[in-house]
Simulated assay, not measured.
Amino acid sequence: MAKALDTIDRRILKALVANGRLSNAELAKEVGLSASPCWQRVKRMEDEGIIAGYTTLLDHRALGVGETVMVEVQLEHHDARSLEVLTEAMAKIPEVLEIYLMAGDFDFFLKIAVSGTQGVEEFLREKLFRVPGLRHSKSNFSLRCVKQVAAYVPD
């Protein structure tokens, strides 16, 4: 069973969310610990799965895929196999950034990064619409990202 997070653990998590490139020494200084206990806490949170991994946020606009599109997907059937087929197909597509299984008016919510309306059309026609069992999709274009965080650390 995972150990309950204390104030220092939460400060470590918040510091890492703000800057995942902090060295252990920098992190320890920021949260008021010496290096060894800081490293032990980080290691424990990694082992317990609280820290699931480390990544780099990219500027998609600078990479030529600056349009973020949210795609709502409805399936014909709601059996386990249909859900699995769509999930596996979308997970293999690099421009699909996030996949959510939903409750409500649609079955899946996809977040994709593409290059303009042509990129959206190609994604829909060449990738999404080829998945068997798809009933309907609806695309919503993001005008601008107003907030982007990698994670939320509750107090």
Rank of each mutant, 00 (worst) to 15 (best):
Q74K: 09
V153Q: 01
C38K: 02
E30W: 00
G104W: 09
E88G: 06
F106P: 00
E95C: 14
E67G: 00
G49L: 08
E72K: 15
A150D: 03
Y152L: 15
I112L: 00
S137P: 05
I112P: 00
V73Y: 07
L134N: 07
K147W: 09
H136E: 15
G116K: 08
R10A: 06
F123W: 13
E121M: 14
L27K: 11
L97T: 04
K14Q: 07
A28W: 05
I12E: 13
L57Q: 14
S36L: 06
H136A: 13
M70Y: 13
D6H: 10
S115C: 05
A62N: 11
G49H: 09
Q118L: 15
L75F: 13
R135D: 09
T56W: 04
V153R: 02
A89G: 02
N19M: 08
L63W: 08
E98L: 03
V146C: 12
Y152H: 13
L63P: 03
F123R: 10
Q148R: 15
Q148W: 10
A28H: 06
L83I: 07
I50H: 09
R21N: 06
F141M: 06
E121I: 15
S23Y: 02
F123K: 12
V149D: 13
A28K: 01
F108V: 07
R21T: 04
K29H: 14
D107C: 04
W39Y: 08
L124M: 14
I93A: 01
A52W: 01
L22Y: 01
I50T: 15
S137V: 02
V17T: 13
T68R: 05
F106Q: 02
K43M: 11
A2N: 14
Y54A: 06
D47E: 12
M70D: 04
F106Y: 14
G133K: 00
S137G: 03
